[in-house]
Design a protein around this nucleic acid. Sequence first.
DNA 1: GATACATTGTTGACAGTGGCTACTTAAGCG
DNA 2: CGCTTAAGTAGCCACTGTCAACAATGTATC
Lengths: 203, 203
Amino acid sequence: MQDAANRPYHHGDLRRAVIETALDMLREEKGWQFTLREVARRAGVSHAAPYKHFPDKAGLLAEIAMIGFDRLRESLSAAKSEAPETLRDEITTLARAYVAFGTDNPALYRLMFSAEEGKAVGMHLNERALAVFDVLLEILRRGQAAGSVRRRPIEGQAAAGWGLVHGMTMLAIDGLLVPEKVGSAPLDAALSTLVEGLGNPAT
Amino acid sequence: MQDAANRPYHHGDLRRAVIETALDMLREEKGWQFTLREVARRAGVSHAAPYKHFPDKAGLLAEIAMIGFDRLRESLSAAKSEAPETLRDEITTLARAYVAFGTDNPALYRLMFSAEEGKAVGMHLNERALAVFDVLLEILRRGQAAGSVRRRPIEGQAAAGWGLVHGMTMLAIDGLLVPEKVGSAPLDAALSTLVEGLGNPAT
DNA sequence: GATACATTGTTGACAGTGGCTACTTAAGCG
DNA sequence: CGCTTAAGTAGCCACTGTCAACAATGTATC
């Protein structure tokens, strides 16, 4: 990335540079097909250099996927901190943040949920994914304690929430939420239905 | 696939054979990476032969994805025909059939929703995908007419349904619906929540 | 029937890929 | 200065998708 001339022999922080470059590549939403050699090329380094820092291609991708989950979690935390008071609004705000993360980083989001096909680093990845799930669990638990959420096994309700936002995110990324079929604000509409289903009718 | 000796020079129906072979390969749930040459190999034909029937790899995949959507639609129709009478049960039955199709054909289902990244055959593919959506629309419309579904823009409610089943299917395929986190029957639980949200509280 | 054409498969080549190993260079340290 | 060793390089391998040239087969026309 810098002039080949004044670049020191030892990159110094190639590991971080490789990850950064890869994330950049994921961002440019071309029908991009990720190639390790291209990453090295852009980082201004030889095609085998990344192997000094990552076991193989899948290893790099797994690491990036984990970073993705971390960032998603951060996005959700940020959204939660500035969420309105009512539970319904809090859920809506969070769901919007979730889907926005996916549509803003489509390639990354896709990677996050397909990287463990290789199953190498599976466990660590799943842990991070499920950490996101915990955010949802916590909210519902609070809602249930306050009586505004139906008294049902909370995991099932959280599963409904996660499944819905994950599905909507994927459909949006795939361009399947075309307005003429699905209305102008499909996410908000779907969220209304969900919140209705979560809500305690007794209140 | 037959003896190389008595195999005639012209295959006769290579197009169908290639598709069939590819579907078989998708079925074997190895961390399989789909390669055109392997398809040709299994079909007992030279590595370039498929190019006489498909423009390129993406073309073949797109065709297979379309077949996938057709089959999904058939599965749903079959499930609908033998569905119980109440609307709630009908929706549940259909949703179960949908998710089952995905978990039974994970590689195919994944392909169906990532094939159009190449965007070549995008429109035809989207048409078939949205045809699946129509099944859902029809049910809800009927339910609304009968008064058992909330009076809301129907597209939004259908979007909620599609998003939920699609999301649950993907999570299940990715092995993210681990019981200790998400309960023993996450799909049924999620469906309860959804149906609750769809249902008309006045009835 | 024989001949010209079109279709379908085959072969061989090309560039590009992931993965690997042997080599070279730079940097630190006595 | 000479040594070790981490960082980066060059080059090999097997493989892929794709294309162009060629061969075998079917079909239509005279």
